[in-house]
């Protein structure tokens, strides 16, 4: 990667001409991010069609080992990156949120493909979540249905760029106090996001909208 911001030795600090070849100056941020970005371990976790392309990416032809990403960890405790590879259904989303909560920080999420980003072709369906970002924060979205392995690799590189842009002084995982876990959704008559409890109560207490309920079923 020849990107200026990405290169490790980029001191912004005047180095005397005679020392240029002998010393390298970098910032702590840069060396910290450089090492992090080159050992992002994804979680071994596939949901649907995109998972097949994810596995194909993990195989010999596209070889994510070149990015230090070949170690797929089945345990969320050891993983840095969650690749949401496929359609997220309402039945599955509690597990995904729980897995995300179990990952140790710093953690990243890639929404691979249209379904994970925004519901995809199945968005209109009753049992599909219209985008995993409604529940967990997503760092990189990769459009496509499914994204080809090369598109996924480009998504990885985009994620590396994001990691390299972070500063050790502002990252959330070194702040004081415990980070808050994301409340796990509950399967009720439909998916219940605990953060929406008050809203659900409010809407339900209002009289039902008759214009919708009176709609005639399909007859033709």
């Amino acid at each position: 990667m020849s990107n200026e911001a990405v290169s490790l030795h980029n001191p912004d600090y005047p180095v005397p001409e005679e020392l240029r070849h002998n010393i390298a100056i970098t910032t702590l941020d840069r060396i910290y991010n450089w090492s992090r970005a080159r050992s992002v371990w994804p979680m071994l976790f596939g949901l649907a069609c995109c998972a097949i392309e994810m596995i194909a990416t993990a195989a010999a032809r596209y070889d994510p080992a070149r990015f230090g990403m070949e170690v797929m960890r089945p345990s969320p405790r050891q993983a840095d990156l969650m690749i949401i590879a496929g359609t997220v259904t309402k039945k599955m989303v509690p597990q995904i949120v729980r897995l995300y909560n179990q990952m140790s920080e710093p953690r990243y999420v890639i929404a691979m493909g249209a379904c994970a980003s925004g519901g995809g072709p199945f968005k209109e369906g009753y049992s599909v979540v219209d985008g995993i970002d409604k529940f967990i924060p997503v760092d990189v979205y990769i459009p496509g249905c499914p994204p080809t392995p090369q598109a996924l690799l480009q998504g990885f590189i985009t994620l590396h760029e994001k990691i390299e842009g972070q500063s050790i002084t502002t990252v959330p995982w070194y702040r004081k106090g415990e980070g808050e876990a994301i409340p796990v959704p509950v399967l009720g008559p439909d998916l219940i996001d605990p953060r929406q409890t008050a809203l659900i109560r409010n809407v339900a207490s209002q009289p039902p909208d008759t214009s919708d309920a009176a709609q005639e079923p399909a007859t033709d």
Partner: peptide, 9 residues
């Protein structure tokens, strides 16, 4: 109203 693909009775 929920901003999500959900509905309740």
């Amino acid at each position: 109203p929920y901003g999500m693909n959900v509905q309740y009775p």
